[in-house]
Design a protein around this nucleic acid. Sequence first.
RNA 1: GCGCCUGUAGCUCAGUAGGAUAGAGCAACGGACUUCUAAUCCGUGUGCCGGGGGUUCGAAUCCUCCCAGGCGCGCCA
Length: 566
Amino acid sequence: MLNFKEKVIDILEREVDSLSRDEFSALIETPPSYDMGDYAFPVFRLSKVFRKAPNLIAEELANKFTDNEYFEKIENNGPYVNFFINKAKLVETVMKEVVSKGEKFGSSNLGAEKTVIVEYSSPNIAKPFHIGHIRTTVIGNALYKIYKFLGFNTIAINHLGDYGTQFGMLISAYKKWGDREVIEKDPINELLKLYVRFNSEAEEHEELRDEARYWFKELENGNKEAYSLWEWIREISLKEFSKVYKMLNIEFDSYAGESFYSDKMPRVIDELNAKGLLKESDGAYLVDLEEYDMPPALIQKSDGSTLYTTRDITAAIYRKETYDYYKNIYVVASQQNLHFKQWFKVLELMGYDCAKDCVHIPFGMVSLEDGTLSTRKGRVVFLEDVLNKAVESTLKIMEERNPDLDNKEEVAKQVGVGAVVFQELFNQRIKDYVFSWDRTLSFDGETGPYVQYTHARANSLLEKGGFNIEDSVNYELLLSEDEVNIIRMIYDFPNIVVDAMEKNEPFFITRQVVEIAKGFNKFYNSSQIIVEDEETKKARLMLTYVVKNTIKVGLGLLGIEAPNKM
RNA sequence: GCGCCUGUAGCUCAGUAGGAUAGAGCAACGGACUUCUAAUCCGUGUGCCGGGGGUUCGAAUCCUCCCAGGCGCGCCA
């Protein structure tokens, strides 16, 4: 697509030779308001070179520039040289690009087939999939889609929490109080009950904990009984999780969880040892990181069993050998910042160059109004319930407003689930928030349903107006302020997708999609789209199409459906 | 105690790798549907940008100290 910023740089370059293209690119900005121009070049940096007041420099520069096919006006405003895009050229550029690319609008081969691993979701087996898991799941999925869209060979890994001492507890508890039939009926809840009971009894009977550790050790040693119990628990849990994944429309390329690395860890421990990194301490083994101002990384417990640090290191090495990743991304809560910092360092100390390609993408905490989430204390909101409730609310609204709609159930699912996902991807990852039903179930203003509604509205216009993508359009008919504003935002869309990838922040896309929807709704309310005049109608329908398409692409990258009717 | 993160309007948050008058949504109030889906649109106002000091032509943005909240700190994940 034609790059107007490059054109600005071309022009500047001709008159100013003290700055490089990259420097120009970094300096050029967007004015606070479009009636001040589309691009602005602040000249402050030049005042030392030219030994003149910024205002004068800007004025002189602006006078040297003549209008051309890309810019209809170049003038200074105080110390800024402002460039006004040739609107017809902009409209034409954007329209042609979107029409030719369709649902690939904004995609690229930037990734050049380089492999990017996104590890996300990773729930713990035998524990409920609750609201706390939504962030990693939804952010990870969006990143996965964004990288893929930009030409990376992307692999989604669900690093299931299917190993560790907790399974010792579970096996131990099951052997004492478990009933297979009862569990089969309601796996997660029953397993959770066992887990909670075990923990509360262990408060008084310390020896239970030893028993749990014993069973985990047995599991690692390949004890048949322990293994088959574990396998069964894993299977029924996964079945439960898949319900949520299905609602969210998420699939993984690999479910290689912690257990997968069980037989690969000894090699790594040997390697750590051979490289002289392991230190014995009270019977346990660790890597001392004092030199790097970090507490030590525990590699092996005093009973010989492993820890998740060991598994993470092993997984990173395994993935390097298996996928040869360019980037290995972990979408995991910010609480684990230190953990990642530690084991990235260990990997580096082992001499693995790929340590620098491992990135932790942290996100803030979700809490409930009455405190932090706690499975054991019963302070949980199940993700499935949240999604179902959102769908229910949607259905209720649809009964009121559009009762004759076909496949209401399906649309309600798309909108309800979309609302939850959208909400999650609306802000920076790092922010903590308190879960609130009110906020989750509000569908007005800057929300998923708002954007989806705009999409459906656009679609309805295209159908009613008899839109034909082959129609030729007179772009001169789309130069009103509202129209150009919409076009500008669509023009920016591809760059925003790249920003989202570079900063691993899907919310850039969420915000842009909202802005486009707002712009279109404003236009819709002030201008008739299906009008008598054929030429005008065709042009406006084309604009409608371009909006609809971009919203659809944007929502798609976020993992949200765009129904045609709602 | 040490480390990391957060602090912008009544609430929830944007603020583009320092720039031109700090913006949205929600909530409140008033208006727009015999006319393309009113989950929409238009209007009304609110800010010691947590506080002090500093760097700069210019700071919500960078540095520093302080305050408040969250998270983390060897055998859980």
